[in-house]
Amino acid sequence: MDAMTPLTVTLPMLDVDWETLVSVNLPTLLFVIVGVPLALVGYIVGLDVLVRRLPKRSQPSVRPWVWVAPAIFFVGLILVYPMVGTVVRSFFDRRGDAFVGLGNFVRLLTDHGVLIVLRNNLLWLLLYPGLVLLFGLLLAVLSDRVKFEKPVKSLIFMPMAISFVAMAIIWQFVYYYKDPSEPQTGILNAVVVNIFHGLPITWIQDTRFNNFALIFIGVWGATGFAMVILSAALKGIPAELLEAARVDGANERTIFRRIILPLMMPTIVVVGTTMVIFALKAFDVVYVMTAGNYNTDILARRMYAELYSAGNYANASALAVILLLAVVPVLIFNLRQFRAVEARR
């Protein structure tokens, strides 16, 4: 640290034993990288040898289960069993002893803080998928007609690769607030002050704006995803169809409304439902930016707080169940879409 310029400040050094960390964990990592695939291959090959010893007639009915068993084990252990457990737990009291029926839900749904949480989730649910689809569609359609489509798409798609935490840090600097007497260092407030001659806004604290500011971070991150999928669907529309419409004298707006949009509708629906699920599960942005303060809390973050900070398993389970119930319509819709597509195969 001595070599550093006096400007820099030493970061708090946490007590990590770096050497044992590497000397213990690195061999384990190598062992896992080699060992786990070997164990899985050994499992399949070994059990197939056993299956071959069975009478020829029963082999076809036993063999598939050998192949799906690991997956069913992990999905059952990590998803199905805890899901059932949480639903059951949500009907019991804080210590998990006494059955309280719908008591947890009644208490939560009459809590002012939880009502704000639900309002915020509703905001996410409406704005996030809507804006992602709007920007994604706009960018897909516009970039389709310019020569530099590829670099444009790469740049817009880039946030998909980074974590929500990094996104939140990026936007922390965009929304940065300085006292009006000082020069603004966040670009948004610099625009507000220097171009619109307004007063700087505390985007993250001001309850009039902060939910929208947070939702927009998510929109910024997911638009590239929507754009890529929608753009693929757009390119799937036969060029002759559009050409024929143009020959018939249809203008570009009519072509978009009457041909492009209806043909892209199935894809728009798929992207939209994916975004609805993302909106319901949103956690990281709020956790990093505000920790749920200033009326920006959402279900997933509140559930985390009940679980970890408050240690209230009854509330946490009930909130998780509310989240699950909110997903159920999307889930049913998804399954119906899936079966419709399967039927067409």
Partner: peptide, 14 residues
């Protein structure tokens, strides 16, 4: 396919 939509939060406590 249905489990694709399940929020992870539901699994945390158990």
């Amino acid at each position: 396919v249905g489990l694709l939509a399940v929020p992870l939060q539901v699994t945390f406590i158990p």
